[in-house]
Design a protein around this nucleic acid. Structure first.
Lengths: 213, 213
DNA sequence: ATATGTGAATTGATTCACAGCG
DNA sequence: CGCTGTGAATCAATTCACATAT
């Protein structure tokens, strides 16, 4: 397995979802062409993406849906359980904890953390909210792998530093700012405000009116 | 202005946020180095990104924060007002409408749309929820530029087709599936479930245990 | 003296064409 | 014969080095 482009990882997640749908529909086999159409990419791309990880198909025939699904599940690390904490038990943190599909594919909410003593002891989804003083111990004890960062912007980097020191491996960053972590910790941004601004750029670029001179 | 990489647009949004923060703090001037550190990229990258759109700095000195901020605001199309509709007045749609920072930078929620007649007439944030029969007319009448897609997965593509036919220019896609649009319509995905799975991949890749054989 | 702006070099990702196998 | 798997070629993005302006 040589170095895998980030775009390939994103697409693998898409293929995984498509294959899950196909399996739920009872479809037995598929092809790089099929997958490409649904995923909105080229068939070359599908095959190249899969080639980073091995051979999964049968030449002249295509791919068996259950087999390919199982293999991609393995590649993505979705055969095990992932313990999650929510850092920041505010509106967004609560909403994520209550999100029905949260528990899909082995992601289990184990704890919430909040700087506000008034929130300590409350429940967030099926888990309990702890104070920041208990963070290091609880992350170890509950074997938490990753955190959803949903604190106010100003609190983001200090919160990240606490999580990193406690041994967290990954952070899903809902805060609209760039956070700094050591190389062994992974960050995925989720920023809808940034998405809206990118949309504005592309829409406006098509129209003739230009920005401020 | 030659062809601008998508990654450059994402970074411009980041620079814009950083410059907004700097201006709020009363900082007068900055440099490609400064911006690079905070944005987590190289100074080369910052200068190259800006070079797609013109010259904004002073050699030997750097950039004036208010000037560069104003220029990037123009580039991103944030000098005008953007009218937004929420397609799907469910939990997520309601949460987005109530999100306090929603109205920042000229994005105004003008309408909600939902297939459920029971939801028609309700309010979503400061706007009203209409039925799908009123969609084409309301999109025109309220001059809606973009929609947040928050319908159930199965309803996504038909909903997109309605929006496109009504003349929408951009879609912020919260639904975890790939949607198909004509080339003049822009789509930005916002998918935290995909983000979690990417995290799982990267964390697991560092550990020695492999996926299913 | 210092930091921008930019062509050139390098690195990386995607596309292609076809060899390889069922 | 059909569709996968893959080296080679193309295309795009990032990095670099330095000329340029203040």
């Amino acid at each position: 397995m040589s170095r895998v482009p980030a775009a390939t990882v994103s697409r693998l997640v898409t293929y995984f979802r498509i294959l899950s749908d196909l399996e739920a529909q009872g479809v037995e086999k598929t092809s790089s062409d099929d997958l490409a159409v649904v995923a909105g990419v080229s068939a070359f791309q599908v095959r190249k993406d899969l080639a980073y990880f091995g051979r999964f198909g049968t030449r002249g025939t295509g791919y068996k849906v259950p087999t390919l699904l199982r293999r991609i599940r393995g590649i993505l690390g979705l055969t095990r359980t992932w313990n999650v904490a929510i850092m920041g038990a505010g509106r967004l943190g609560q909403a994520l904890a209550d999100f029905p599909k949260f528990g899909e594919h082995g992601f289990v909410l184990k704890a919430g953390f909040d700087a506000d003593p008034a929130k300590v002891g409350m429940r967030i989804g099926a888990a309990e909210v702890y104070g920041l003083d208990a963070l290091a111990q609880k992350i170890q004890e509950l074997e938490i792998d990753m955190a959803f960062l949903t604190v106010p912007t100003a609190a983001a980097q200090p919160a990240v530093d606490l999580l990193v020191e406690a041994g967290i491996r990954g952070i899903l960053n809902f805060v609209p700012s760039v956070i700094t972590v050591p190389a062994h910790v992974f960050v995925e941004p989720v920023d809808f405000l940034a998405g809206v601004k990118r949309l504005a750029f592309y829409i406006q670029k098509m129209s003739p009116e230009e920005g401020t001179p």
